[in-house]
């Protein structure tokens, strides 16, 4: 079954194409890395899939649902490289709000475990907008994983994370993958690419590689055109 499907998906900013018509299917349970130079269209593609950006043309489906629909939002968890937080809630209150809106019954034990794993258990009552870059990323990770999902979209997850944070995140990815969730991870961390089953590479908004990471030199793929 296709978890993420795009059909002639296109995005232009003014006259500048950010993503050329892209047709793509990501099967359920796949672990996919998305690479490309800065400005290659990775974040644009991810945001359109998350329903946060309207395509100029074409369509995106999450499962059988249009991206951005309520059903798609239930299936998809989005972890941004620039996470935003409410300025009036503590991290714990954020976790409660997100988890309960997604109908997680045992959210407290789940949240406690997540905070412990990312090393934020001492900061649970603090306002995350006051956190440093790395701590904000950890807080965003805990928010992305506190709710159920079938598809996880992640944009530059390792930026700002310390080594324990990276290890915790890799473990969470692994566990989600074992649970059968589909993972699409946009990254510049080329060492991570070895751990995925499928590699997608974008250059100047066009797809230049779609296949196994073992069959290519990933360093060539991330060079600008």
């Amino acid at each position: 079954m296709t978890e993420l499907g795009t059909r002639q998906l296109t995005k232009t900013y003014g006259d500048r194409p950010a993503l050329e018509p892209l047709t793509l299917n990501v099967e359920s349970g796949a672990k996919v890395a998305l690479v490309g130079h800065n400005g290659s269209g990775k974040t644009t593609l991810m945001k359109m899939a998350a329903g946060l950006l309207d395509p100029t043309d074409g369509s995106v489906k999450i499962g059988r649902h249009d991206a951005g629909s309520q059903e798609a939002r239930r299936l998809l968890s989005w972890l941004s490289d620039t996470p935003t937080f409410y300025e009036d809630l503590s991290l714990w209150e954020h976790l409660e709000f997100v988890a309960r809106l997604h109908g997680v019954a045992e959210w407290e034990s789940r949240a406690e475990t997540l905070l412990e794993r990312v090393g934020l258990e001492q900061r649970r009552d603090d306002i995350p907008t006051t956190f440093s870059r790395g701590l904000r990323q950890k807080a965003a990770i805990s928010l992305a994983f506190v709710r159920p999902f079938q598809l996880l979209l992640v944009d530059e997850p390792f930026v700002g994370l310390d080594e324990p944070g990276k290890q915790a995140l890799l473990m969470l990815f692994e566990e989600a993958s074992q649970r059968g969730a589909t993972l699409v991870i946009a990254t510049h961390e080329l060492s991570f690419v070895k751990q995925v089953s499928r590699l997608l590479a974008l250059r100047d908004g066009g797809l230049i590689y779609d296949g196994s990471p073992a069959d290519t030199d990933v360093h060539d793929l991330v060079l600008p055109g």
Binding site: Q70, F85, H102
Partner: peptide, 12 residues
């Protein structure tokens, strides 16, 4: 103020 967060929640 946080439209990205709002648009990720499973509620209209």
């Amino acid at each position: 103020d946080q439209p990205d967060r709002t648009d990720s929640l499973p509620i209209e």
